Amino acid sequence: MHRNSYCLAALAAAAVPGLVPVRTAPIATPAEDLDVAGVVGEDGRRLMVHSPGSTAAGIRLERDLRVTDALTGTPLRGVIPPVLGFVKLPEGGRAAVTEAPAGRPLMLEDLQRSEELARSLGQVLARVHTVPRYAAEAAGVESFTPEALHAEHRQRVRTATAGGHLPAAVAQRWEGLLEDAELWDFTPQFVHGDLSEESLFRSGDRVSAVRDWSSSKVADPAGDLAWLVASLDPERFDQLYAAYREELPTSTHPRLMARAQALGEFAVAEWLAHGLETKDEAIIADARGMIADLDADLAQLARDEAERTFEQMRSRDQA
Results as ranks from 00 to 15, higher is better:
residue 72 T to N: 07
residue 72 T to W: 08
residue 72 T to D: 07
residue 73 G to S: 14
residue 73 G to M: 02
residue 73 G to E: 10
residue 74 T to Q: 02
residue 74 T to Y: 04
residue 75 P to G: 01
residue 75 P to Y: 00
residue 75 P to K: 04
residue 76 L to Y: 10
residue 77 R to H: 11
residue 77 R to A: 03
residue 77 R to S: 10
residue 78 G to T: 12
residue 78 G to S: 14
residue 78 G to R: 11
residue 78 G to C: 04
residue 79 V to G: 04
residue 79 V to Y: 03
residue 79 V to M: 09
residue 80 I to N: 04
residue 80 I to Q: 06
residue 80 I to W: 03
residue 80 I to Y: 02
residue 81 P to I: 08
residue 81 P to N: 12
residue 82 P to C: 03
residue 82 P to T: 02
residue 82 P to D: 10
residue 82 P to R: 14
residue 83 V to L: 14
residue 83 V to K: 12
residue 83 V to W: 07
residue 83 V to P: 03
residue 83 V to F: 05
residue 84 L to E: 14
residue 84 L to I: 06
residue 84 L to C: 13
residue 84 L to H: 09
residue 84 L to G: 09
residue 84 L to V: 05
residue 85 G to Q: 01
residue 86 F to K: 05
residue 87 V to S: 00
residue 87 V to T: 01
residue 89 L to F: 03
residue 89 L to M: 03
residue 90 P to F: 04
residue 90 P to C: 06
residue 91 E to G: 06
residue 91 E to R: 10
residue 92 G to E: 06
residue 93 G to H: 04
residue 94 R to A: 12
residue 94 R to S: 11
residue 95 A to M: 01
residue 95 A to N: 00
residue 95 A to G: 10
residue 95 A to F: 08
residue 96 A to Q: 01
residue 96 A to W: 05
residue 96 A to G: 04
residue 96 A to Y: 07
residue 97 V to S: 00
residue 97 V to Q: 06
residue 98 T to M: 11
residue 98 T to I: 08
residue 98 T to P: 07
residue 99 E to S: 07
residue 99 E to Y: 07
residue 99 E to M: 07
residue 100 A to E: 08
residue 101 P to A: 15
residue 101 P to G: 11
residue 101 P to C: 08
residue 102 A to K: 13
residue 102 A to H: 11
residue 103 G to K: 06
residue 104 R to D: 10
residue 104 R to A: 13
residue 104 R to M: 10
residue 105 P to W: 13
residue 105 P to M: 08
residue 106 L to G: 12
residue 106 L to P: 13
residue 106 L to D: 02
residue 106 L to V: 08
residue 107 M to F: 13
residue 107 M to I: 09
residue 107 M to N: 12
residue 107 M to E: 15
residue 108 L to Q: 12
residue 108 L to G: 14
residue 109 E to W: 12
residue 111 L to S: 03
residue 112 Q to T: 14
residue 112 Q to A: 15
residue 112 Q to P: 12
residue 113 R to M: 13
residue 113 R to S: 15
residue 113 R to A: 15
